[in-house]
Design a protein around this nucleic acid. Sequence first.
DNA 1: GCTTGAGTCTGTAGCGACTACAGGCTTTAT
DNA 2: ATAAAGCCTGTAGTCGCTACAGACTCAAGC
Lengths: 148, 148
Amino acid sequence: MREFTIGELSRLTQVNIETIRYYEKIGIMPNPPRNSSGYRVYSAPYFERLSFVRRSRELGFSQPEVRKLLTLVDEHKYTCAEVREMTVMHLSTVRSKIKDLRKLEKVLANMVSECDGGDIPDCPIVDILSAVPDADRKKPTTTGQPFS
Amino acid sequence: MREFTIGELSRLTQVNIETIRYYEKIGIMPNPPRNSSGYRVYSAPYFERLSFVRRSRELGFSQPEVRKLLTLVDEHKYTCAEVREMTVMHLSTVRSKIKDLRKLEKVLANMVSECDGGDIPDCPIVDILSAVPDADRKKPTTTGQPFS
DNA sequence: GCTTGAGTCTGTAGCGACTACAGGCTTTAT
DNA sequence: ATAAAGCCTGTAGTCGCTACAGACTCAAGC
């Protein structure tokens, strides 16, 4: 069976060497065997597991989620329903992130459109940023720039 | 002029007390005066600066970006063009995040739609997650699940 | 005056998910 | 033989906070 050094595994999986060691430390990757001088010796199953982890991370699954996915796979007793449920939940958090970012996008786009980009120190964006928080709309006693 | 304790400032700005102290430590907020027993004493300009910071963070500006915005404002010599440029750049990173998340959403939605949610340990989502990385499509010698 | 509870103080450690060294050993290539 | 590249461990840094611990102070009620 083909064997890899950590560097080869890193190149093959596109996962940083330190990240691989980090995954080992936190128990996401199992401790691989070592050769006579203490180097880690990886083989195909490690490659596959690491690919799985990488792909899951790429798709935005969190560390605990990845852990759970791995457990399900490891223990050979996961059901499609369980995996699907995790994915559905993850999908909904992705969707709500998109929603939030779109709101943000609108606000920022408005800010930019209200600003003429002139050379003088007078900018509507700064005014918008200086707005007081929602929780307490009563204006404080002064109205100047903070520490200007 | 109205004065606040840190707790009052926290309530008014909706910024956590520890976060206010943290901002002070990292220099985003200036050191406020202290009363005889060492309590921080805030006043309107602090309130305004903290509101500015909060709003900027809400809009997703990073710590260095906030710092830069503050410097521009503090030094009274920012130009509208500079602020606008930062905002435009920030807007474009927000847009690319949205793009990425939408790709993600598609992949996840596809994964879910291919999965029938059955009770048996056989799931197309796991197969997708197990796919090898792009960088090296040559399959390794084995094809089994990682560590299953 | 005394107590109780809330508020504040400093300092440190933790989170997630890595990344970046330092300082030393081993392997490989020339 | 020597230099470069690779690997090892361990620790500290990143960002943006949050959560304590342990000590002090303040305001209100009795």
